[in-house]
């Protein structure tokens, strides 16, 4: 089992619905977020191109954040989902410094928090909150080992990229281009 997510940059309009939905679903405190939107515009008027990406933890196959965690709070869970166990986290920030994607933040309660791929929903056979809400249906989630999962199917027929592959983290968030 290997959970992954694909983001269709050709459809994403950067509305941030995924950000709010995550915030309400997971009770992320106001002022923090587990996912965020990046908009890149290139060229000069009127020869312009724009890419919009909804970003979050990449649930890397080879995660520096898990490696550097001194307590084992950061760990791999079902299907390679990278999680933080609140009451094992000492809040040393090592994982935050180690993440090339800046996907983690120190929760005001002290522990470090990040995207969980909504494991609590996934375990019930539901999609993550952000995937479920996206008005353009540009987020695809599922098990890469299952060729019929939404994410497998879309990755089979579309060109895609990952972010900072050179960091060697084996990210599991794919951007359709």
């Amino acid at each position: 089992m290997r959970y992954a997510m694909a983001v269709d940059t050709k459809k994403c309009v950067g509305c941030s619905d995924c950000v709010v939905a995550c915030q309400t679903e997971n009770n992320v405190p106001i002022g923090y977020c587990r996912d965020w939107i990046v908009e890149v515009t290139d060229g000069t008027y009127p020869q312009l191109e724009m890419e919009i990406r909804s970003e979050r933890c990449n649930h890397c196959d080879n995660s520096p954040c898990v490696r550097c965690c001194p307590t084992g709070a950061s760990h791999y869970s079902d299907g390679g989902i990278v999680l933080v166990t609140k009451d094992m986290c000492i809040g040393c920030g090592a994982c935050i410094a180690s993440c090339p994607y800046d996907a983690r933040y120190p929760h005001p309660d002290g522990y470090v928090d990040k995207c969980t791929f909504c494991i609590h929903r996934v375990q019930k056979g539901q999609n993550p909150a952000c995937v479920e809400v996206c008005p353009t249906k540009c987020l695809y989630f599922g098990d890469l080992d299952d060729p019929n999962s939404d994410v497998s199917k879309v990755l089979q027929k579309r060109k895609f990229k990952t972010l900072i592959p050179e960091a060697g983290t084996k990210p599991q968030l794919y951007f359709l281009i």
């Binding site: 950000v19 923090y32 977020c33 965020w36 990046v38 890149v40 800046d102 983690r104």
Partner: peptide, 19 residues
């Protein structure tokens, strides 16, 4: 000109450790 913009979220030193 290339413009990279974080539209929402992360504009927050608590979220972005580069700060």
């Amino acid at each position: 000109m290339k413009e990279e913009l974080i539209v929402s979220g992360r504009m927050n030193y608590k979220v972005d450790p580069t700060l």
